[in-house]
């Protein structure tokens, strides 16, 4: 079973839910940090690095000017404007390229070949029963979905995996959520939390994925998130109370289920709830 933990709004507690869930699930589990622009699950898990970090690249076009006649087919095809053709000269913008390979296919002169462009690394760490796989996007690279897909390619065929998604509702989130079995949307009981929860709900409905909500810092705001979930028939899987000790444990890089064992049951119940719904 592959579970993704997403949110819409940043800072609601995706990583908190992910690492604590992985800790209490009771079996060997893979945890994938798909927030490759700022992976942070490792701060809570620690763990030993297994092998060397794997370099992840995307194929970008290289034009042989001796063969190119400047027809412009490549530029017209590219949805991301990674190629511009002017005065029979092709300008390539590798930082814009998504690596689809279309330019090479449409070039009538066979003037385009693909060369790898490094975008980041994928690393595997072990911490007890938890195998953490994290992507780290290189500084200055804006294209995270190919790295997220490379991280997800390491999900084993058997067993459970929990994916820590990036915040927001754009391409990196879609790349994370695709082909998962269940989505946990973490929110907080604030107007911002509700606003972004609505956006996230629209995304998972578009992707036709089953999902439920975890309300974090419950009691710190109002009941509008719960009212919204009831009106929309969205299951509220768990409510994590607004407890200062949780924030203190987090600030020390500790998992709440270790530091505050009274919350183990909450996460065990959450795990059981998710299993019951998939």
């Amino acid at each position: 079973m592959i579970i993704a933990v997403a949110s819409g709004k940043g800072g609601t507690g995706k990583t908190t839910v992910t690492v604590n869930l992985a800790r209490v699930c009771g079996t060997a589990v893979h945890l994938l940090d798909c927030d490759v622009e700022e992976p942070n699950a490792h701060l809570f898990l620690g763990g030993e690095l297994c092998g060397e970090p794997e370099t992840i690249s995307i194929p970008v076009p290289e034009v042989d000017e001796a063969l190119c006649d400047g027809c412009g087919e490549c530029s017209r095809f590219c949805a991301y404007k990674a190629l511009a053709v002017l005065a029979k000269r092709v300008l390539v913008f590798p930082e814009m390229c998504h690596g689809c390979g279309g330019c090479r296919l449409v070039c009538p002169k066979g003037a385009i070949r693909e060369v790898p462009k490094r975008i980041g690394v994928a690393e595997t760490l072990r911490s007890g029963d938890i195998t953490l796989i994290q992507g780290r996007l290189d500084v200055g690279v804006a294209m995270s979905p190919p790295l997220i897909r490379a991280v997800k390619a390491k999900i084993p065929k058997e067993g459970d995996a929990i994916l820590d998604a990036p915040p927001g509702t754009s391409c990196p989130v879609i790349a994370t959520l695709r082909e998962t079995d269940y989505v946990v949307l973490v929110t907080e009981p604030t107007p911002f939390g509700l606003h972004d929860l609505r956006l996230a709900v629209a995304v998972v409905r578009e992707l036709r994925l089953p999902f439920g909500v975890v309300v974090n810092r419950a009691g710190s705001g109002d009941d509008r998130v719960q009212d919204y979930c009831r009106d929309e028939w969205i299951p509220v899987l768990a409510e994590i109370p607004d407890d200062r000790r949780i924030a203190e444990a987090y600030s020390r890089g500790e998992m709440m289920v270790d530091t505050l064992p009274e919350y183990r049951v909450l996460f065990q119940t959450l795990w059981a709830n998710i299993r019951g719904l998939t």
Binding site: S75, Y80, A82, A84, V85, M96
Partner: peptide, 15 residues
Amino acid sequence: NAAQGAGIQSAQTVA
């Protein structure tokens, strides 16, 4: 409304 590359495309348009 281009997702990216508006400047590149606009430069081609002007050219």
